[in-house]
Simulated assay, not measured.
Amino acid sequence: MRLLPHAGPELHGRRCPPRPQLQQATARPLRQPRHAERPRRVPPGQVSGLGGSAARRLVRSARQPAVALRSRHPGRTGWRAGSRRPPDVHAQDTASTAIRRATAVSLMPANSGARTLSALQTALGDTSQFVRRAAVEAIEGVSPDMRLRMGVPMLSDPSRAVRLAAVSALASVPGAQWTPEDRQTFETAAAEYSQSQMVNADRAEARTNLGNLARDLGQLDAAETEFRTAIRLWPEFTSAWIQLAELARARGGERVTDSILRTGLVPNPESADLHHALGLSLVRQRRTVEAVAELGTAARLSPEFARYAFVYGVAVHDTGDPARGLAILEAALRQHPWDRDLLQGVMSFAAEAGDRASAVEAARRLVDLAPDDPNLRQQLQALQR
C-alpha cells in the first residue's frame, strides 16, 4: 500500500504517520485464480452503510482495479495468527518443512524491498518445487523489470508446475521489456501452459486460466469467450465472474461490471470475493452507502483474508466513523499480526486517535517486517518521542 504524501494531525506536538485512504486501500492488481472453491455456507452479515460529506473521499478509488483475488495456501490462517516472526524469516528457515516455507512465502508482502527480494530469490532456488512455485506466484507483486529478472529462469525449471506458474507471473510484462531470446523462452512455456489447460477444457478452472492468459497478452475478445465458457461450465466458480467483470470495467463499462457481479451473486450469494468486487464497483459509481455495506459483508464472510478487513476498515473510517474503522483494523490484526496493510492502517489511525501505545506497537512490527526501510524507522522514532 502506498500512503498519501501529506501528514496527519498532531499527536502530542508531533505529526502522525500519513494515513491510508480508500484510494490506496483498493490499489492492488488482480491476482490469478489458482484453485477452484465451492461457495462456503456462512450466514451473510448484516451491514449498515455510512453517509455524510466525508463519504466523498470514497469515490477517489474510481479508477482502481475491481478486486484483489485471493491466493490460498494450506495452513495460511493458523500459521499467520500464531506466528511471532515475519514471513520472510520463516521462508528461509531450512529447519521448517517445505509446506511451511511455501506458506510463509505466500504470506510475504508484495513489494520490491531489499529484504523481500532477498527472501524471494532464496525461495526461487529452494530444493522443494512447492516453495519455488510459491515464490514464482509471489513475484507477481514486484516491478515488471524485477519480475523478468527473477522469473525468466523459472520458465525452464525442472518442475512443470513451476514453469506454468512462471507463465502466469510473466504474461502481463510489457513486450518492450523482453529480449528476443527471453520472449522465445516465454512463448515455448506459454504453449505448454495452454496445452496443459486444454487437457481439462471441460473444467471452469482451466477456462478461466486460459482467459487470464489471453487477457494478459492483450487478446481481450478471446479472454471474454473463455470467462463466459467457464461460467457456463460452473456458475459457482466465482473467479470467472470476477475476471469477466474486471474485463468489462477495463473496457469502460462500469454498469456492465455491476450487472455481471450481481448476476454472479445469484448462484453465489455468500461469496466474499463477489461482494468485495461489487463494493468497489459501487465506490466507483459514487454509491457510498451501498459500497460500504458490500465491503463489510465481504470482510465478515471471509475473516481469513486480511485485505477485505483492511479495505472495509478504511472505508468505515473515511465515511465518518474513525473509532469503528480503527476497531475493525485492530480486530483483523489480531488474526493477521504480520499483515503490512493492517499494521500501517492501525499505526496511522491509532496515532490520529491519540493512542500512542497501539501506534508504536504497530510501527515496531512494521520495522521488523522491513528493517531496511528508513521511513518506517523515522516514523517509529517520531512516535516514541
Rank of each mutant, 00 (worst) to 15 (best):
Thr263Cys: 10
Ala299Asn: 07
Ser61Gly: 09
Ala165Met: 06
Ala359His: 07
Glu352Arg: 12
Gln21Thr: 07
Met150Leu: 14
Tyr308Asp: 07
Ala306Asp: 10
Val162Asn: 10
Asp93Trp: 09
Leu278Cys: 14
Asp182Glu: 13
Met198Pro: 00
Leu120Phe: 03
Pro180Asn: 07
Glu226Val: 00
Leu280Ile: 14
Glu137Met: 04
His336Phe: 02
Arg19Val: 03
Asp88Arg: 15
Glu205Val: 15
Leu22Ile: 15
His12Glu: 12
Gly320Trp: 10
Leu3Tyr: 00
Leu233Lys: 00
Asn268Phe: 04
Glu37Thr: 05
Glu294Tyr: 05
Gly51Glu: 12
Leu210Thr: 01
Gly13Thr: 00
Ala169Cys: 00
Asp216Tyr: 07
Thr179Met: 01
Ala331Arg: 14
Tyr308Thr: 11
Thr288Leu: 11
Ser48Pro: 01
Ala110Pro: 06
Ala95Asn: 05
Leu124Pro: 02
Pro235Ser: 14
Ala363Thr: 00
Ser194Cys: 13
Ala114Leu: 14
Gln184Asn: 10
Thr225Asn: 13
Ala351His: 00
Gln335Pro: 00
Leu170Cys: 05
Val314His: 00
Asp182Ser: 14
Ser259Met: 09
Ala323Tyr: 10
His12Trp: 00
Thr208Trp: 01
Leu233Gln: 12
Met1Ala: 14
Leu107Met: 15
Arg307Gln: 15
Tyr308Phe: 15
Ser168Asp: 11
Gly264Val: 06
Arg84Lys: 08
Glu294Thr: 07
Arg57Thr: 13
Ser271Val: 09
Val162Met: 02
Pro87Glu: 13
Thr297Tyr: 02
Pro267Asp: 08
Gln177Asp: 08
Ser358Gln: 04
Arg364Thr: 01
Arg163Thr: 02
Gly279His: 11
Arg149Asp: 10
Val89Leu: 03
Leu301Gln: 06
Leu244Trp: 15
Leu380Met: 09
Gln197Ile: 10
Gln23Leu: 03
Glu246Pro: 08
Ala206His: 04
Asp88Val: 10
Ser71Gln: 13
Ser302Asp: 15
Gly75Ser: 03
Ala135Leu: 07
Arg40Thr: 08
Glu140Arg: 14
Ala291Phe: 04
Phe349Ile: 03
Gly82Asn: 08
Pro65Tyr: 12
Thr26Ala: 13
Ser259Trp: 12
Leu124His: 06
Arg251Thr: 05
Ala189Met: 01
Glu181Ala: 15
Ala204Gly: 11
Thr229Leu: 05
Arg249Asn: 07
Leu213Ile: 02
Leu11Asp: 06
Tyr193Cys: 09
